[in-house]
Design a binder for these strands. Structure first.
Lengths: 171, 171
DNA sequence: CAGATCGTTTGTGTAGCGCCAACCATTTAT
DNA sequence: ATAAATGGTTGGCGCTACACAAACGATCTG
């Protein structure tokens, strides 16, 4: 915005017009924490924990994903995915089938029960969400949801291709 | 600017929008995790960790807050706030002064060095943010930031006043 | 004075998760 | 065909982030 103006004027001592470079990372962290705390209590009766919800939500959108695909989008170690899926499969919310083309793979998908439980959980989450997002109006919450959905549905971005993207941190 | 998504057509007596109750909680969790993972690496050289950033960010907005005020907005236990502030104070990023009106209290505030370090950190975070929010355009990121800021700046919401807000979870 | 409150220290416990190593079953390369 | 790589699984180790409790000093308040 104002950056273009800086080149004219001799700029005597004007020591850098404060970058106003506020990042959303910390806010995201903060908000997610508050949400997670609230969610735990309303989710407990359903036998689920926040991270199960995350997994189920991801599974709804990318059904038939492999376990390491899941590990990569969830950004957690493969060994932990096993435990996570064990929980979910034990309750019949998720299904592991061997992939036909590569029988080493497990194709993970949401069961009908899983989809149902997810909907119930989302319904229960409305309470938590109301408390945490209380400062936002309904329209804003929709916008937020949409932005989050778009942001998370992006590719996991492998480091290989990530290397050339950004010029460099010059700031 | 404002998303006109969901313009709510007439929807004739639809038997309750059924399902479509997607909550942003899990997405928030997911995105925050990815951001935090990325942040750790770029923050490490600055001697900070994600939670320090959250604290500093909160402190910039609510300067001169008490420690339990901080505990309440951060939603972490008071004893842990002590350790967190010890870290920050040890590096001179934060200052604890006794409150004049109530000398039991510590008034916490960002030092000049703290504000500077915070800006540097935010600058460094741009890299992580680019990777994580790659699917969003610049305008969308701004919108996201604004929503997050509004959402987090809301009062901690004591349970007393929270009781009457929502009718009940009928879903 | 008594009791409550803020911050601090210390200690204990737990959950989440990375990481390493070993092990099948299977696929791919030689 | 034999060897090497890969996907999943199990088990174990260890670290970090916390919550929670107890006890203490300093201080405020009834």
């Amino acid at each position: 915005m104002f950056r273009a103006l800086r080149k004219l004027g001799h700029m005597p001592a004007l020591p850098v017009e404060e970058s106003e470079q506020h990042r959303s990372g910390p806010l995201l962290d903060h908000l997610a924490r508050r949400m997670r705390l609230r969610s735990e209590s309303v989710l407990a009766p359903l036998g689920l924990r926040p991270r199960h919800l995350v997994a189920l939500t991801v599974l709804r959108d990318s059904d038939g994903i492999s376990q390491q695909g899941l590990a990569s989008t969830l950004q957690i170690d493969g060994t932990n995915v096993v435990g996570l899926l064990n929980d979910l499969e034990a309750e019949g919310l998720v299904e592991r089938r061997r992939s036909p083309e590569d029988r080493r793979r497990h194709v993970v998908s949401l069961t009908a029960a899983g989809a149902k439980r997810l909907r119930e959980a989302e319904c229960a989450l409305a309470v938590a969400e109301d408390e945490v997002l209380g400062a936002l109006g309904p329209g804003e919450r929709d916008t937020l949801y949409e932005l989050l959905r778009r942001a998370t549905s992006g590719r996991p971005m492998s480091c290989v291709e990530a290397s050339g993207d950004e010029p460099d941190p010059i700031c």
